[in-house]
Design a protein around this nucleic acid. Structure first.
Length: 626
DNA sequence: ATAGGGTTAG
């Protein structure tokens, strides 16, 4: 790029007469495109007195290559309306059709198709393939198939387009049928078929294809890694990334790193996440919008909100996703005021919020108990920005109202919802009934929940707890029996911790870890010291056993305590402990962790399914409100 | 001199 600028400067001051300016511009624009420097490309193009068809195609390609679909169509419009511009050719149409597909601009696409037919470019195989691809992306597989059938000559790209097209339309079987039928396969054919399986959720079939592929490039690896990451197989994604590094002949690119960062974010695998950050700086890789977003999200979800902000501030370009990520990140850490500040800054930058942005704002309110502010944002969504609240938003607001004891309003809101409430929304209200001991309402809510999901474990546990707390032990027992008979399973509590680049996973009562004995010994020791410091196990949370000692035991083997104990014995004194949990952190563990942070003089950061808890010196950042 | 198909974030 540096040399592009030098050449450009040279051409402005002195253009040699033997050099065709269009020729030079095509070359320079091509380099700008590869480096995502579209403004520079546009400048070079605008300085041409008389752009020829090569120059027009170059500027169209530069924008479509960078997924800047609307600018592609903008330039195409300019070309059509300018009296001096050359007529479009087959090269023009491939870029333009791609842009229509990317924009899902069905009407424009059909119009371009009409022009293609009128100008007889519909016999060019490149244009034909682009048309087929476009109709698949519009979801119109019938027309796509028709165009394919009418082709006189087909090449491997035509077949590949069919495979990926059917995959896009959700028809893996047909994609496989085409894949088996195609006369010649290349690397892209294999990758497309593999991606089709991954997209359909059949990771075994995808992996099998990946393993037998005759050759692989970075895109094949990316497709498999992304397949794992998008199907929540985060450890598999990371393992495959490590394998890719080991083979040594394929260099990860930004797409690879984005998928791996997403896996790191979900797992809280910050060692690898930080390594990727350094890798990016070290290799001089451009911090693209996607990559920046993935990095910010990784840091925020791994508990490094300061680092997340550092990357966010460093980004050249930010879109609504970037802002939503930083807002939800701040919300997760309980920094509600900063989340609001970023929201207003976002508006100042002219970026329109969407439904995800509002999820971030609402959860910021939930985590800080800002009920009225939450209601204000909730109303703002529809009234000011025309965004119809989705079930998640209702869930958030019901949670907000319920937690603060405004149960009547919460129930009214559910009953006034234009969409059917789900188990999560009712569950939020049930949580409020539990906290505020509203037994009558709770019973009603449980009934509604069990109508929707007869195996809702939370309801059974809730009922058993309520009965036990008011001394109706027979009813409590009946409820537990009921639960067992209906085979209601609670999601098993699971926590994990990253130590020395490896993620260690613990389930409740887990004894499968090689260092299990010493982990349990550590917990017993801690329990003793905690009790001396005034800790009282919250055994009233346990419903299924009677013996007090047994209850304490059950509490002490909660997965987060196991992960924490493992962290304490495997890291040096003073190191921050970071644990991730799949469920909400339980009341007892929350209390215990406060004590532990003081006893061992460590900062302990727990990410549960909805937020972060920073424990330090016997206190938690959530101020016991979560 | 310029082109089509497989991979990416909340």
């Amino acid at each position: 790029m540096k040399q592009v600028l030098q050449i450009q400067a040279q051409l402005v001051t002195y253009a040699p007469p033997f050099l065709d300016p269009n020729f030079a511009a095509v070359k320079l624009i091509g380099i700008c495109a590869v480096h995502c420097k579209l403004r520079q490309a546009a400048l070079i193009f605008s300085q041409l007195a008389d752009p020829n068809v090569f120059a027009w195609n170059a500027i169209l390609k530069a924008h479509s290559y960078n997924h800047n679909w609307s600018y592609t169509l903008h330039y195409f419009n300019c070309q059509l309306s300018s009296p001096t511009a050359p007529a479009p050719d087959e090269y023009t149409f491939t870029s333009v059709l791609k842009a229509c597909a990317g924009l899902m601009a069905v009407l424009d696409g059909c119009k371009v198709h009409a022009v293609v037919v009128k100008t007889s470019f519909n016999f060019n195989i490149f244009v034909q393939n682009s048309l087929i691809d476009m109709y698949f992306k519009f979801g119109n597989s019938d027309i796509a198939q028709l165009l394919f059938d009418e082709m006189l000559v087909r090449d491997v790209v035509s077949w590949n387009t069919l495979v990926s097209g059917y995959s896009l339309c959700g028809n893996v079987e047909l994609a496989r049928w085409v894949f088996d039928k195609m006369p010649v396969k290349n690397l892209v054919s294999w990758s497309a078929m593999m991606a089709a399986y991954a997209r359909s959720g059949d990771l075994e079939a995808a992996r099998q294809l990946f393993d037998v592929m005759p050759e692989r490039n970075v895109v094949s690896w990316n497709a498999m890694i992304a397949g794992y990451a998008q199907n929540e197989k985060y450890s598999n994604a990371i393992n495959l990334f490590n394998e890719m590094q080991k083979t040594g002949n394929v260099r990860p690119n930004d797409v690879t790193l984005i998928s791996v960062l997403s896996a790191c974010a979900h797992l809280g695998a910050f060692d690898l996440g930080k390594w990727i950050d350094r890798f990016i700086s070290r290799s001089g890789m451009e911090l693209s919008l996607f990559l920046g977003n993935a990095l910010v999200d990784m840091y925020a979800k791994c508990g490094f909100i300061v680092e997340a902000r550092r990357i966010f501030d460093k980004m050249q370009e930010r879109d609504v996703i970037s802002w939503s990520i930083i807002i939800s990140g701040l919300a997760m850490h309980g920094h509600a005021e900063e989340a609001f500040e970023y929201f207003f800054e976002m508006l100042d930058c002219g970026v329109m919020p969407n439904e995800v942005t509002f999820m971030g704002l609402l959860s910021a309110c939930t985590h800080s108990g800002l009920v009225d502010k939450g209601l204000k944002y909730f109303n703002m969504m529809d009234h000011i920005y025309g965004i119809t609240p989705k079930i998640e938003h209702y869930g958030c607001v019901v949670d907000l109202l319920s937690r603060s004891g405004r149960l009547v309003e919460a129930e009214d809101l559910i009953n006034s919802m234009p969409i059917e409430a789900n188990v999560i929304v009712w569950g939020a209200l049930l949580g409020g009934c539990r906290i505020y001991g509203d037994i009558e309402r709770g019973e009603r809510v449980v009934q509604r929940i069990l109508e929707l999901d007869s195996e809702h474990s939370g309801s059974y546990v809730y009922l058993a707890n309520v009965y036990a707390s008011v001394g109706r032990l027979d009813d409590a027992a009946k409820c537990r029996l009921n639960m067992r008979e209906n085979k209601v399973m609670k999601t098993p509590g699971c926590s994990w911790i990253e130590v020395h680049n490896a993620v260690h996973e613990f389930f409740m009562g887990d004894r499968s870890h090689p260092q299990s004995d010493i982990i349990y010994a550590t917990i017993s020791d801690l329990m003793l010291r905690m009790k001396l410091a005034g800790y009282k196990p919250k055994t009233d949370l346990i419903v299924h056993s009677i013996d007090e000692e047994e209850k304490e035991n059950a509490l002490s083997t909660h997965s987060e305590k196991l992960a924490m104990a493992f962290g304490l014995i495997s890291t040096s004194k003073g190191t921050t402990i970071r644990v991730v949990k799949n469920l909400r952190v339980c009341n007892d563990c929350h209390e215990a962790t406060k004590f532990i942070s003081r006893i061992v003089e460590r900062e302990i950061i727990v990410r549960d399914r909805s937020r972060f808890h920073h424990f330090k010196d016997g206190k938690c950042s959530c101020n016991d409100y979560w």
